[in-house]
């Protein structure tokens, strides 16, 4: 819409999907919370199941745009717009989300990690739609962390966004995923940093090693919003802050 409004959109014909009921609604079963692609940010903010199981997603929704945008903008749109600066993808990555894609040829289910293949490039055929987003419900003792750095407290586009989820078992990090926004051409998983923390005891988290490894997971750039140096350093600082909070659980 922004590009269209600025007169820079190459497209001038659009199809309105907003009344397709099969793309709407939040559903909860024993193992998953699933979202129709047309679930608005506001729907997520208002849904008790999302608050209970996926608090990072509520924070992501609240951090996106203005209230008017939260009322109209959708989770499916946030994914398919493929902006590396979007605020829900880091949370979806941290929760290990999957996508259900549909076309006249049928349906397929893919891990969200890997869906973004390059800047604005997706594992999505021209005749395919993102239909649903499926997020496994965290089990056991969970740690959830979300922080958006956008310079302004509201109506900001992220310079760095970090979401993390850890499952803790007997004082050890049993499961750990970190999703990042605005530090790579696509929403990024911090695989290297995660590997350092995975299996570590909460009392002896190798924090500095993880912060160093994080640089292998990201490839920030200088642009009109910030600098590569700032993004890298702040991503490390936020990871350090998050690990400090994790250690204190």
């Amino acid at each position: 819409m922004v590009v269209f409004n600025a007169g820079r959109s190459p497209f001038d014909r659009f199809l309105d999907l907003s009344r397709l009921s099969e793309l709407q609604g939040i559903e909860e079963d024993a193992t998953h919370v699933s979202f129709g692609a047309l679930t608005t940010f506001r729907d997520m903010e208002d849904c008790p199941a999302v608050h209970r199981h996926l608090p990072n997603l509520v924070k992501s929704a609240r951090a996106t745009g203005a209230l008017a945008i939260q009322n109209r903008g959708t989770l499916g749109g946030n994914i398919a717009n493929a902006s590396p600066a979007a605020d829900t993808p880091p949370s979806l990555l941290a929760y290990g989300a999957e996508l259900e894609l549909v076309s006249s040829r049928g349906r397929r289910r893919v891990a969200y990690e890997g869906f973004h293949r390059g800047y604005k490039q997706m594992d999505l055929a021209p005749d395919e739609l993102v239909a649903r987003i499926l997020v496994p419900k965290p089990q056991g003792l969970g740690f959830h962390f979300f922080r958006k750095v956008g310079t302004r407290q509201a109506q900001a586009i992220s310079k760095v966004c970090l979401a993390a989820y850890a499952r803790i078992e007997a004082g050890v990090v049993a499961e750990f995923r970190v999703g990042l926004g605005s530090v790579a051409p696509v929403p990024a998983r911090a695989r290297h940093a995660e590997a350092i923390i995975q299996g570590a005891a909460l009392r002896a988290l190798p924090v500095e090693a993880a912060c160093t490894e994080l640089l292998k997971d990201i490839s920030p750039i200088d642009d009109i919003r910030s600098t590569a140096q700032y993004r890298a350093r702040v991503a490390q600082n936020v990871l350090r802050q998050m690990l400090g909070e994790l250690a204190a659980v």
Partner: peptide, 22 residues
């Protein structure tokens, strides 16, 4: 943000003025 003598962040999204929350 200047780029070759032009303002590059000429949008309210990218030129940061404070909101009431700031």
């Amino acid at each position: 943000e200047w780029k070759h003598g032009r303002m590059a962040n000429n949008q309210m999204t990218n030129y940061i003025i404070p909101t009431s929350m700031d």
